[in-house]
């Protein structure tokens, strides 16, 4: 019973820390970077009024969103209209339960994992399940608004997300064949000494990367919110923080995708420089910090890549999008599974 109590206390503390991290790093910093970098790419200045270098802009935005009038159209279905952003954001937050931010620290003789449940042996299945549930938020949001733009945006988004989920799932199968486990932390540990999975799964990584862009509904796959034709897509009828929740969830999902890519293909929290250089012992706070910083740097590089692509590549046409998903990525992903199998059997 005391063990159970300990788990609850530990989880509460970790959950609060992780949630702060999501809000600050993925929400605030993500939005800030997006605005600033898009400004630089388009030869503008970007936010520079609120706080030093405009760094407090995202907080001002959130405050504004909370104080905005929260409109629910009379034609909408109020229950589902409320439920949709809750599902989207709740699921986006829940995924972070399985993400390890570092190995472990030994405090008072107890090994504390840097993550809520990084060793859960269903971690990857949990991530896939949560991204699948995330589709419900978008579908419900679009349908319940009772707006033609919203409905079309939701339909497009759903069809796109479920199509690319196949390639994403199959790309993961390749990693699992190399790793032989579903626990994310275990996969990271196997990639020690710079034996990153990207070396063994280059095609799998590219497939996963493309699918991740489509899953997060970001350019060049942002058809659900194609402004000239669909206004705002599934969140047209949302205002105030309900819109903010969809927005936050989008950035949280971008963070998740980046984190999963880093964890599975780029060694996750494995340090960028050997911890031995600084004389850090395994389990020491110094090493844990170094791991966290390495993980953070890798994630930010992925996030910067996401932003760079968004402001450089034009949007696909819908038939091109579907063809890419079903007729290019899916066969390639199957070939990747077969190829991985043949190569690893031959090498054995």
């Amino acid at each position: 019973m005391s063990e159970f109590l300990w788990v609850i206390i530990e989880s509460t503390i970790k959950a609060v820390i992780i949630l702060t991290l999501i809000m600050l790093v993925y929400g605030a910093l993500g939005v800030y970077l997006e605005r600033k970098i898009s400004a630089w790419i388009q030869n503008r200045i970007g936010p520079n009024r609120v706080g030093p270098f405009g760094l407090l802009q995202p907080f001002a935005d959130v405050l504004k969103l909370f104080l905005k009038e929260d409109l629910v159209p009379t034609a909408a279905n109020p229950t589902f209209h409320r439920l949709a952003p809750i599902i989207t954001l709740g699921v986006a937050v829940a995924v972070y339960a399985v993400i390890p931010f570092g190995d472990y620290v030994t405090i008072a003789g107890r090994n504390i994992q840097l993550g809520l449940a990084p060793n859960a042996n269903i971690a990857i299945l949990f991530v896939l399940a949560m991204t699948s549930v995330g589709v419900y938020g978008i579908t419900l949001g679009g349908w319940s608004s009772n707006n033609k733009y919203s409905l079309l945006g939701a339909l497009r988004s759903t069809a796109q997300m479920i199509s690319y989920e196949l390639s994403m799932g199959l790309a993961l199968v390749g990693v699992l064949m190399v790793a032989g486990t579903l626990s994310i932390n275990q996969i990271v540990i196997q990639q020690s000494n710079y034996h990153w999975n990207i070396i063994y799964q280059p095609l799998g990584f590219i497939l996963f990367l493309v699918a991740a862009f489509a899953e997060t509904n970001r350019a060049p796959f942002d058809l659900p919110e194609a402004e000239p034709e669909l206004v705002g897509g599934y969140n047209t009828e949302y205002s105030g923080m309900k819109f903010g929740m969809f927005f936050l969830a989008e950035y949280a999902n971008m963070g998740t995708s980046s984190a999963i890519m880093v964890l599975l293909y780029f060694g996750g929290w494995q340090t960028l420089v050997p911890g031995g250089w600084f004389g850090f012992e395994p389990g020491s706070i110094g090493l844990a910090l170094l791991q966290f910083v390495s993980f953070f740097i890798k994630i930010e590089i992925m996030v910067l890549f996401f932003i760079w692509v968004r402001w450089s590549v034009p949007r696909f046409r819908y038939d091109q999008l579907m063809n890419l998903g079903w007729k290019v990525l899916l066969p390639l992903a199957i070939a990747n599974v077969a190829g991985t199998g043949i190569v690893s059997l031959l090498l054995k």
Partner: peptide, 14 residues
């Protein structure tokens, strides 16, 4: 338990 915990936490915050 942490998985369920985070789900409840996420939906609670939302």
């Amino acid at each position: 338990i942490p998985l369920v915990f985070m789900l409840v936490f996420g939906f609670g915050i939302a």
